[in-house]
Amino acid sequence: MVAPLFTISSTMGTLFGIKAFAVAILGGIGNAWGVVLAGLIYGVAEALIIALAGSTYSQITTFTLVILALALRPNGLFGRAEVKKV
């Protein structure tokens, strides 16, 4: 499925997988609608960065945004904090 988008190689899924994991984490684990929204936000943000600043630093910038988002919201953008049962 990824082959039409990337050059075919043994590592062609690495970046795609990392981005998918980032989106899943950003959306909040266990929150399907959150992941859909996070995917939309991630894609729009990446496209905007490429359009405004070029593709050279797009991945650095998007992953930096992921770190910042998780620093501000440790359970993802739409996730809820786990309740510890004692």
Partner: peptide, 10 residues
Amino acid sequence: AMVTIAFGFV
């Protein structure tokens, strides 16, 4: 884990 991966990537 995601923060670590993203930071390594950056």
